[in-house]
């Protein structure tokens, strides 16, 4: 009992400390929100005015009620991100299982090739991909955004590292019971690695959601634009309209929050280990 209260006190103290740290982390985010409620000519007041002097909804009004179809961008972003994530999780998980638990010829070499390509700057793939997509006829479609992010070395690498931590004996004993690779993959490996899947989902969702360069190069039409590209439509000629930009960015964060809050629940001690004990 006494031990319990002492523990609780320490925990409370640590919570306060971490909250103080977290304030440093959220400062730009607060600035974003604050700027989104300011008229354009008050955004850069110095020292920073955290609470707008004359709060206005004008920026949000511009985002939702102008001739720029923000909701279309929003829907496009959802579609692209969800399909990218779904595709990536499936293909990466299968490949990661093979790299981790199946001893096939060429495994190490292929894995090394996979990893090495992570080292090539994505920016320099823009033009080659652009040319290839034109040949494949998927330039200026959402497939140009979804397909490349469906087959990633990153996802495979991440999942493989987590699959590696699951002892081979578990798989071996299942094999003796007559289970094939696929059922080992589905029944044993996947349930034990939910945290890794969650991490991958969070990363890939954010990656797709915030990607600016690929839509810039691969998408030409307004109605196919995703949010980061679509925010360009709020520009005044030759100049940035910060108010509208921040309002749009704030709205664009909502799905990311949702995905994060849903999947971070998987990071709770015990889920993975519970399976292991059996």
């Amino acid at each position: 009992m006494k031990m319990g209260t002492r523990k609780a006190l320490v925990k409370a103290f640590v919570t306060v400390l971490m909250t103080m740290f977290s304030i440093v982390m959220i400062v730009p985010f607060l600035w974003m929100i604050s700027a989104s409620f300011k008229p354009e000519n008050q955004i850069f007041t110095f020292p920073i005015q955290w609470i707008p002097e004359t709060p206005t909804l004008q920026n949000y009004n511009m985002v939702f009620n102008s001739d720029v179809p923000f909701m279309t961008f929003f829907w496009n972003s959802i579609k692209v991100s969800v399909l990218s994530v779904a595709g990536e999780v499936i293909t990466s998980a299968l490949a990661a299982y093979a790299f981790s638990k199946i001893k096939f010829t060429g495994r190490n070499l292929i894995f090394l090739i996979y990893l090495s390509t992570l080292a090539f700057p994505i920016q320099m793939m823009l033009i080659p991909r652009f040319v290839i997509f034109r040949l494949l006829g998927i330039y200026n479609t959402h497939m140009a955004l979804i397909l490349p992010s469906m087959f990633t070395a990153f996802g495979t690498f991440l999942l493989k590292q987590f699959f590696d931590t699951i002892p081979d004996e578990l798989c071996e004993s299942a094999k003796i019971d007559g289970a094939g690779h696929f059922s080992i993959f589905l029944r044993i490996i996947c349930p034990l690695c939910m945290a890794a899947f969650s991490a991958l989902i969070i990363f890939q969702f954010v990656g797709s959601w915030n990607d600016y360069e690929q839509p810039l190069v691969f998408i030409r039409e307004k109605r196919l634009a995703t949010i980061p590209l679509g925010l360009d439509y709020f520009k005044t000629e030759n100049a940035t309209n910060y108010g509208a930009l921040m309002a749009g960015s704030c709205c664009s964060l909502i799905p990311i929050f949702t995905v994060f809050l849903i999947f971070q629940k998987q990071f709770v001690a015990g889920i993975a280990t519970a399976g292991m004990k059996e």
């Binding site: 199946i102 010829t105 292929i110 397909l147």
Partner: peptide, 21 residues
Amino acid sequence: AGWLFIGLNFLGYIAFKLAPL
């Protein structure tokens, strides 16, 4: 089994990573 498992990823990988590279 190994090739079946990586097959899907590998094909996409060749088309969208290796080829541009």
